[in-house]
Each structure stands twice: as C-alpha cells, then as structure tokens.
Design a protein around this nucleic acid. Structure first.
Lengths: 192, 192
DNA sequence: GTCTATAATTCGATAGAC
DNA sequence: GTCTATCGAATTATAGAC
C-alpha cells in the first residue's frame, strides 16, 4: 500500500473529473471559442491555473471533452427491410443519452467554426454511417447514399439539439421513427 | 449640384462596400467570433478604425452583413403534387447564388455559437418554410411538417456548405432534386 | 476622411510562494 | 496540490492629430 493501487479509489484527482464535467457542459453550450478556461474553472469551483495543470492546454482539454465516450458501437445490421428503422433508433439512443450526447453536441456546435471539430465530425460519419449504409445498395453509390443519410441525420440533430427549433424539439421519439425512418430507408438502399 | 444628388454615383463610400464585402466573406468562412475587425479591415485594405467609424460596432456590422439580401421571395406555390420539387429548387437557387448564399452561410455558421444568429435562423424558417408548407396538409400538423422539412434542408446545407462533407458536396443539382425532392414532398404533405 | 496611438478587456499560459 | 500574481498577446473601441 505504498504508492499505486491497481484501482485508484479516488484521490484529489476527483478535481480532474470536475474540470472535465464543467468543460463538457460549457463546450456543449457555447462551443470551443465561447467557453473560456476561466469560465470552466469557475463552474468547477477551482483555480484557472489548475485547468492547465491537469490538461496541458485548452486544445487538449477540448479533445478529451469532445471525444470522451464517443466510441459509438456500430449499428446492429439486421436485414435490408429495416435498415432505416435501425439507423434512426440508434440515432435517438446516441443523441439522447449522456454522455455520448454531450460529446456529439460539443462536436457539432464547435464544427461550425473550428476545423479540428469539423474534421472529427467528418471522421465520425465516415466511420459510423458509411459502413452501415454501404452493404445495402449499389457499391458504386455508397458515397451518395451515405451522404444523403448524413444530411438528414445531421439536420435533425442541428434543428433539435443545437438550434432547438420548437416544432422539431416537440417531436416525440415515435413521430421521428415513423416519419424519418422511411426516408433513411430510401436513402440507404438507393430505392427510387 | 451642391450637396446631395438623388442617386449618389459613388463617393469615397465605396469604402463602405469594401468593408461589407470583406466582412461577409470572413464571417461566412470563420463565423462571428472567428472573424476579427482587424482581419476584416486588412482584407478590405483599410484601417481597423474605419470599420468602427462606418459601422458603429462589430454587432452592427454583423447584422448588416448577415441580413443583407436575405429577404427571400416566397416560394412559388404551384400545386400540391409538385411542392417538394418547388422547395428544393428554390433552396438550390438561394444557397448557390450570391449574395443570398453568403448571408445564409454566415447565419448558419454563426448560429451554432451565437444566440442572435440562432434566433435569426429560427425566424427565417418560421417565416420562409412554415407558410409555404402549411397549406398542403392537415393545419393541425403544420408545425411538425414544417419542422421535418427544415431538418432536411438545414442538414443538406450543413453538410454541403458548412462541413463540406465530400459525398454531399459531390452531389449534382439533378441528384439533389431527384433524391431530396420526394422526401420534402412527403414531409410537406404529411403523407404516410 | 484617414491614420496613429492607446485605452480597457479578456484571453491562454507561466512562475513561484506556500 | 493549490493558490496569487502576472506575462504577453489578442480583442473591441475611442481620442485626437493631420
């Protein structure tokens, strides 16, 4: 019991978790530029200097905050007839359950004016939606089909979680599944 | 011919137009926070102090830059069978022809982390898409139908003009009209 | 009208006492 | 580990010379 236990119970590095929580909240609300280290420190009730001490820079803190818990499990590929339904259900589960939801909001909000975040969004959709959509239509068409799926998913996310357009916020899960599912089905399979 | 002609030919207030052009370009590229008055002045090849002299503040400059030429004429309402097609064609005309296109990109990019811009986007879609969509389905459903249309349109704009997702950028006008038009038709009319 | 100079903030990051 | 104090750079905006 001298120095390291395999399972650190909780040292004063609970501070680290507090900083990360505060950062995730403020990055999600105001984006990368809008959230200052001072604001984050104030929300975490610690000194601004500690933020730099625990994380080397604001960039590193942002990367940790945005990428934490963002490793989304792949959509369960069932059969061709229900791929649209499966995608939209997975979307709702990802975006409406923390902590993945917070990470996605952070990324999408910051992507508008931060190239690092924008590149990460492109990467997420290249690794998450394209492989899911690819097997269900003409392989030569995979890019177009995945792009259309992404446009609808990102549009829904933008309206519902970023801009908070009232009629889109008001949609129930059932309505979204019923209305958007068939569209994704059409886009994913390339049916005309 | 002493002071004012009804039609000012062009005084040194061509400077004003230069500032506005530079502001629109940089706001569109980097958003409100990312574009500084110094950068705008440098691009316009004038002194930063002149920017404040011509426009009272950065906020006022942004408002001018973002709202200029944003008064979109209403979509021509033809008949119920072609409303989806009409909306997507109007969308492409608006977003791919300056100067309206620049104004929309400025607004959408800044809306992610600027509440003024976000409110303006909500306002644009409340006055532009809702009235167009409303007459073509159950009036009690107008909010939901307009919200779904907005989600697809904003998603397409986000992927194509902001994030520049390669497969979405690659889509031709014909492909967009063919693929997205029927989806908007379905959303706008509420057909299941 | 255009510019220099600068005020007044705010930012990220560092140094060093305790 | 935590803090005070501060640096250096960037920002918006103003005052005043020419």
């Amino acid at each position: 019991m001298s120095t390291n236990q395999p399972k650190k119970p909780s040292k004063s590095d609970r501070t680290r978790a507090q900083i990360l929580d505060a950062a995730r909240q403020l990055f999600a609300e105001h984006g990368y530029d809008g959230a200052s280290i001072r604001d984050i420190a104030a929300l975490a009730s610690i000194d601004p200097a500690m933020v730099i001490r625990y994380f080397r820079s604001k960039d590193e803190l942002f990367a940790r905050a945005a990428l934490l818990d963002l490793q989304l499990p792949a959509t369960q590929v069932t059969d061709r007839a229900s791929i649209g339904d499966a995608i939209i259900r997975r979307f709702l589960r990802t975006w409406e359950n923390s902590p993945s939801a917070t990470g996605m909001v952070i990324l999408l909000r910051s992507a508008a004016s931060n190239e690092f975040a924008a590149e990460k969004v492109r990467d997420v959709f290249a690794t998450q939606v394209r492989p899911v959509v690819a097997p269900f239509g003409d392989p030569a068409d995979a890019g177009r089909r995945a792009g259309l799926v992404a446009s609808q998913l990102l549009g829904l996310a933008t309206c519902r979680y970023l801009l908070r357009l009232p009629p889109v916020v008001a949609l129930s899960h059932e309505e979204i599944i019923r209305d958007v599912g068939p569209v994704l089905q059409r886009y994913a399979t390339g049916a005309d």
